[in-house]
Computed example of a mutant assay.
Amino acid sequence: MGKGDKKTKRGKINRGTFGARRPRIKKRPSIENKLDISKKAKIK
């Protein structure tokens, strides 16, 4: 169980693949995208 093992996290890192042991980290939408700058209150 190590770098050559397909089923371990270390083996997935070594091969550069993803799976149940090493899922992809999904990018969260940034705060800037959530708050729409164009819809700000207009200053009079």
Score class of each variant (00 low, 15 high):
K42V: 07
K42G: 01
K34L: 10
G16Y: 02
R10M: 07
K12W: 02
D36R: 15
S30V: 09
G16N: 02
E32V: 06
N33R: 07
K6L: 06
G19I: 01
K26R: 14
E32W: 05
G16P: 04
R22P: 00
R10I: 11
I13P: 00
P23Q: 04
R28K: 15
R22T: 10
I43T: 05
K6M: 03
T8M: 02
I25G: 04
K44Y: 09
K12P: 00
I13E: 15
I31T: 13
G2H: 02
R15G: 03
P29Q: 12
P29L: 11
I25V: 13
R10A: 14
K6H: 07
T17P: 00
I31M: 09
R24T: 12
L35M: 11
R15C: 00
N33Y: 12
M1Q: 07
D36E: 11
K42S: 05
G19A: 02
D36I: 11
E32C: 06
I25K: 14
S38R: 11
I43N: 09
G4Q: 06
M1H: 08
G16L: 01
G2Q: 02
K39Y: 04
D5R: 01
R10K: 14
N14C: 05
K44V: 07
G2S: 08
K42Q: 03
R15I: 00
K26H: 13
K27I: 11
A41S: 13
G19M: 01
K39E: 06
G19N: 02
K26T: 14
K44N: 01
I43M: 07
A41R: 14
K3Y: 12
T17K: 07
K34Q: 12
K44I: 07
A20P: 10
S30F: 05
A41Q: 09
N14R: 10
R24G: 02
L35H: 10
D36C: 08
K27T: 12
G4F: 09
M1F: 11
A20S: 13
D5Q: 04
I13N: 05
T17Q: 06
R22K: 14
S30P: 06
T17I: 15
K7N: 10
N14Q: 07
K34A: 07
I37V: 10
N33A: 09
N33S: 14
P23R: 05
I31K: 15
K39T: 15
K26M: 06
K34P: 00
I13A: 10
P29G: 04
A41N: 12
S30N: 08
S38H: 07
I43P: 05
A41C: 06
I43R: 15
T8V: 04
D36Y: 04
E32T: 08
D5E: 09
L35I: 15
L35F: 13
G11M: 01
K3N: 11
K34C: 00
R22G: 03
